[in-house]
């Protein structure tokens, strides 16, 4: 069974450890701007939300890629970018309705969360358990589902892994 990233914004303190760890995995440097997970604060700082890809089922990014550079890791359920194959056309970045796949101009390829091959670095460093990696089946109602319903983006196809 797949595991999924469970995000509980109420526990997030915006310490940015996840962004540091993620960028280190992605580009080998502690640079939050290169992280595939981002923390957003709003309502004057009162609300903090870590935000990343939910590995949705009918992934728009994967479908739209003109060269098959985004594939499904059947073990983790993650949609993974093969950097050597990505041409950097950026079409996935405008097709994903969540904005969670983005272009890295230094590398000339796109980046997204790939669940670190089953051991997400962000989860390992999160000090408050705002991020955990749990059995996907244990998740029920969630934010992405709400979004999917709101947005008619074929709710069944959109992930349901963020709370």
């Amino acid at each position: 069974m797949h595991k999924a990233l469970l995000i509980k914004p109420v526990h997030c303190t915006a310490c940015q450890q996840c962004e540091m760890a993620c960028s280190y995995m992605k580009v080998g440097a502690f640079n939050p701007s290169k992280s595939a997970i981002k923390i957003f604060t709003f309502d004057g700082g009162g609300v903090k939300v870590p935000y990343t890809c939910t590995q949705c089922n009918e992934a728009w990014c994967m479908m739209v890629c003109p060269v098959g550079a985004i594939t499904l890791n059947t073990e983790t359920g993650a949609k993974v970018v093969t950097e050597a194959r990505c041409v950097g056309c950026k079409v996935c970045t405008i097709a994903c309705p969540f904005g969670t796949i983005n272009y890295n101009s230094d590398k000339g390829v796109v980046t997204k969360c790939d669940l670190c091959n089953g051991t997400p670095a962000c989860v390992e460093v999160c000090p408050t358990n705002a991020l955990t990696y749990v059995d996907a089946d244990n998740l029920n109602s969630d934010r992405m589902q709400t979004h999917a319903e709101k947005s008619h983006t074929s709710a069944g196809e959109v992930a349901h892994k963020t709370l």
């Binding site: 101009s105 008619h152 983006t153």
Partner: peptide, 16 residues
């Protein structure tokens, strides 16, 4: 700009 562009598409497509 190159970040978060997909959100624009999502909001338009969802007629939110």
């Amino acid at each position: 700009r190159s970040h978060d562009l997909g959100i624009i598409k999502g909001l338009i497509q969802s007629k939110a």
